[in-house]
Simulated assay, not measured.
Amino acid sequence: MIFAMNRSLVLSTLVLVVVAICFGLLQFGYASTPHDLLEWTSKIALFISGAIVLLSIRPVLRVLHWATFANYWWFPWLDGEWRAEIRSNWPKVHRMYLAAKREVPMFDALATPLTEADELVTRATVTIESSLFDISIEIMPDGNNKVSRTRFVRPRWAKPDRPELSYVYEQLDNTALAPTDTRHHYGAGIVEFIAKSGELSGHYWTNRKAEAALSTAGTIVMRRVTRPGFFARLLRHKSA
């Protein structure tokens, strides 16, 4: 998650931390000369390393994120379960494939707009997990054994733009395959976090069966699954 911050801001923050530590050592008499500060170098490095290790623990990072209102100046906390609605242009690609085989009438893909009838809607469960240095996304479509896991995720928030995630993912399909499908493919996407609705929304594309020009693209919208709080679960348990 740290990569959501501007690099110069990260470096400035580290420098500020070191300067603050040095100032504290001088102010409280632990060091009186530059030589004394130099002797503290290993301790300062150990302190910074310890802080990084501590923040690498997700619950600790979550508490710090909440306590410092980081949702407003760093990056939104997106961890948890989401429900996704994925719309693919596959039906139109498939229609082109069948038209090329002369199994359906020919049509002009450029002149024919993409309609709702040409979209394949898939619903899926999405799990997002964040740490200090990375974010992972897992997508499991409903009703099959397909699973998509990210290989790379990059958060970015350049105000006044919305917070966004850019990602590359790998999908495995352990089910029986159609001739137009492939068991393993890669894809990429960009989604924006819309604070007003609490949604992640954007576009994706794949290299699925790209050698046959059957690769797909589409849109994805993710809505967070709201789980009942502790007291709501307690009341539900008592009433059961």
Score class of each variant (00 low, 15 high):
T33H: 00
E116K: 14
E81S: 13
T122W: 13
L9Y: 11
S130F: 13
N145S: 12
S8E: 15
T68G: 09
T182C: 13
A117V: 03
N89D: 15
L120Q: 10
D134G: 10
A158R: 05
S131P: 02
K43P: 15
M96C: 11
A99W: 01
F47P: 12
V147M: 14
G24D: 14
R102L: 07
T219H: 10
P163C: 07
S166A: 11
R123Q: 05
A109V: 02
T216N: 11
R183W: 15
W205G: 06
P163N: 00
G187I: 10
T41Y: 11
A217P: 03
Y204R: 01
R227L: 13
G202C: 12
E170L: 14
P163Y: 00
L177H: 05
K101Q: 10
P160K: 01
R62N: 12
S131M: 08
V19D: 04
N6V: 01
R162V: 03
W73D: 00
G218H: 10
A195R: 02
L132K: 04
V121H: 04
L16H: 14
L26E: 00
V221D: 15
L61S: 08
V63S: 15
P163W: 00
T41M: 14
K92A: 04
Y30P: 14
A188R: 05
L54A: 14
S130L: 15
I44R: 04
I190R: 06
I194F: 15
D118S: 04
W66P: 03
K238D: 14
V19Y: 12
E85I: 03
L165I: 04
A232G: 07
L25A: 00
